Amino acid sequence: MSLLELHNVDVHYGRIQAINGLSLTVDEGEIVSLIGANGAGKTTTMKTISGLLTPSAGQILFEGEDITAMPAHTRVTRGISQAPEGRGIFPGMTVAENLDMGTYGRKERKGIDDDLDRVYTLFPRLKEREKQLGGTMSGGEQQMLAIGRALMAKPRVLLLDEPSMGLAPQFIRQIFAIITEINAQGTTILLVEQNAKQALSRAHRAYVLETGQVTRTGVGRDLLADKSIIEAYLGVA
């Protein structure tokens, strides 16, 4: 049994179908990447998993439980936490306050200090800026804060939507190194990323989405070496 499963999921925005018969699995301990062009349905998939969108057909299972109709806030307490596209931090709150918001749904307060220490160890810059307002930080720092806040929910699976968007190259390398470390520490990750080279090089498995459908799947590094994937998603890189 996979940790997370989508079976023949359809999602519509009004009459427009954004996801068409999507099926995928994420096993415990994996990094699974979704790659595809803009408009392929990657962010829609993430929002559907986190409960922000409701499928018009299909089924979502988490640890074998049908969560298709489960409210978004309940999914967080069940172990699904997302760092959204665009970061979505609280700009008027400090770093420490943003991180504390990640614990909002935790009924058991035990272990929160340990989790905060983990976040500060992964992201030392957040520790340095814990009293700074989130909105005054750089884009890379805000991305660190978004991931850290999601980790404070103590997720079984961490959803990362475009973590490298708009970042300078040095921050991109740093963010992906930390993503790999988070996974090595035992957190399962589903990653949506436009930087296909970074995503595929670090993914255990990957899915290629085109117009809301899976067109390819395989081991991340195998797809990275595939000529058609290179031409479509890596360009001259």
Rank of each mutant, 00 (worst) to 15 (best):
A40T: 01
Y104G: 09
E128Q: 15
G39C: 08
P155M: 11
D66G: 07
I229R: 10
A69K: 12
L234D: 09
E193C: 07
L24G: 04
R149F: 03
P84V: 07
M165Y: 04
G135C: 12
T94R: 05
G135D: 13
G102P: 10
S164L: 01
T215I: 04
L99G: 10
N183A: 13
L190V: 04
G140A: 06
V119T: 09
K154T: 09
I112P: 06
P124Y: 09
G64I: 12
E231I: 05
D161L: 01
V208E: 01
T215L: 03
F123R: 15
V236Q: 13
A177N: 11
P71Y: 14
D113W: 14
D100P: 01
E130D: 15
E162D: 00
Y233M: 05
P155A: 04
T180F: 00
R202E: 14
L160R: 10
S201V: 07
L190N: 06
K154A: 12
Y207T: 00
T217R: 14
L99K: 08
E85R: 06
P91G: 02
Q142W: 05
T48C: 10
R216K: 11
D114C: 13
L145N: 14
R106P: 13
G41Q: 04
A153P: 10
D66C: 03
D115A: 15
D117G: 07
S228Y: 01
P91W: 12
P91R: 03
R75Y: 06
Q82D: 10
S81A: 10
N195K: 06
I35C: 11
P91S: 05
G41N: 13
M152F: 03
K131Q: 14
T121Q: 15
D27F: 11
Q213T: 15
T25W: 02
V219N: 14
G88F: 03
D226V: 03
R156F: 05
G29T: 02
A203S: 08
T211M: 07
G134I: 11
Y104A: 09
R216Q: 14
I147Q: 03
L34D: 08
A69R: 10
Q59W: 06
L167K: 05
M144H: 13
